[in-house]
Design a protein around this nucleic acid. Sequence first.
DNA 1: AGCTCAATTGCGAAACTGCGCAATTCCTGA
DNA 2: TCAGGAATTGCGCAGTTTCGCAATTGAGCT
Lengths: 113, 113
Amino acid sequence: MSVPLYEAKAELFRLLGHPVRIRVLELLQDKPMPVRELLAAIEVEPTGLSQHLAVLRRSGMVSAHRDGSTVVYSLAGGDVAELLKAARTLLTQMLTGQNELLTELLGAERESR
Amino acid sequence: MSVPLYEAKAELFRLLGHPVRIRVLELLQDKPMPVRELLAAIEVEPTGLSQHLAVLRRSGMVSAHRDGSTVVYSLAGGDVAELLKAARTLLTQMLTGQNELLTELLGAERESR
DNA sequence: AGCTCAATTGCGAAACTGCGCAATTCCTGA
DNA sequence: TCAGGAATTGCGCAGTTTCGCAATTGAGCT
């Protein structure tokens, strides 16, 4: 293997590490969408969106094809949904973990007063 | 929610977007480990490892406790394994997708000669 | 107390990322 | 064919990340 797997994973995560790109992937999960529609759904300048789309395209996560004067993007292959779901699960687990710790600490403080 | 979910996801992915941090999480999946052992397993300077561990600690993904003169790190709560597995799956899907496309293109070229 | 090893932190330099503006490409309709 | 909108690209600036060195903290040993 020329590129170790953990490098590839890190690279993948780095690609996903931007709110706009997450939004794009989430939106494309429902159905393919023209840029115009993505633009309407996400708060971002056209040029910024293009750049993020370019990143996703270069990485092979989405593919684009022209339809007349507009460009339509769609997810390319892989199970992105699963990854996003795992992220969501992990986030909620981490947050509840922190909450438990917090309430525990608060309880301890109350008792010590 | 003060922070939109997609922001939190992006943040999470950004945290994971470094090879050393990925390695650390992978190693900690098996069992808690002292820094010394992580250091032996990963190619990185002690100071660099410390910094990456600090990032993971601040984010709440790992926790550390002293044991004598060494510090032992362990995964904190959440199901990191699931996320890493999803990443691995997605990567292989993307790579095979590219391979198929490649062989398709090569086939087409051969035919056109 | 002084020494040493383990781990962390502070800091400055180098590399990278994201953003917006201006310019460009590609298509469509007059 | 040319004016217009859709989308992309090139480019420079500002902000962030990463890295290694030097300095610091904490624990065990004599």
